[in-house]
């Protein structure tokens, strides 16, 4: 197995756009139709880094849930990075993302974690207040993303790759 590869898991409530984020990042595609994920979809992409190195991300798009069950815990094993995904238009999904992070810490105490607030293209409908994000940024990296338009997506995965490489 290649040593410069890392497993990164996407966690978040259903419908927040995890599958769409991966599709945008890996294949640069987007679909408006919502198809719920059952189990896990695994993709990979090599990320060239600033120092010339290349980090391969093996990206696990895990079925959306507001809490971690045994099945999802089994998918998390071996992960070095966690992308917690919330939907800006549904504030409850932000609480789910934070809960998922706290639950996953028992299994992955050292995994890098980045919080993605997706659906930036619908920012006029966001329930998540800017002040909330300011508070969250004091304790973790938060990136606003839009799978539909691509905003922040590349940045999020590159940031994760950079941290994993460091």
């Amino acid at each position: 197995m290649s040593t410069n590869a890392s497993k990164v898991c996407l966690l978040g409530d259903f419908g927040v756009g995890k599958t769409s984020l991966v599709a945008r990042y890996v294949r640069n595609t987007f679909s408006d139709s919502y198809l719920t994920t059952v189990g896990v979809k695994v993709d990979s992409k090599e990320v060239p880094l600033a120092d010339g190195a290349v980090r391969k991300l093996v990206i696990w798009d895990i079925a959306g849930k507001s809490g971690l069950d045994a099945l999802n815990m089994s998918y998390l094993r071996g992960a070095s990075g966690l992308l917690l995904v919330a939907d800006g238009t549904r504030e409850a999904t932000l609480r789910s993302a934070v809960d998922l992070l706290l639950q996953s810490r028992s299994l992955l105490p050292d995994a890098h974690a980045i919080l993605l607030i997706n659906k930036l293209d619908l920012v006029d409908r966001w329930e998540v207040a800017p002040a909330t994000l300011v508070e969250l940024r004091k304790s973790m990296t938060v990136i606003e993303t839009s799978a539909r338009q691509g905003d922040g997506v590349e940045q999020a995965f590159r940031e994760m790759a950079t941290r994993l490489h460091a």
Binding site: M1, A5, S6, K7, V38, G39, V40, V42, S44, V58, A63, L71, S74, Y75, R77, G78, A79, S80
Partner: peptide, 17 residues
């Protein structure tokens, strides 16, 4: 890649991949 990072000393089950 499915087993990346996992300890390989025991059997591993992954459902719905």
């Amino acid at each position: 890649d499915l087993f990346l990072g996992m300890p390989m000393e025991a059997a591993i089950d992954l459902a719905f991949v």
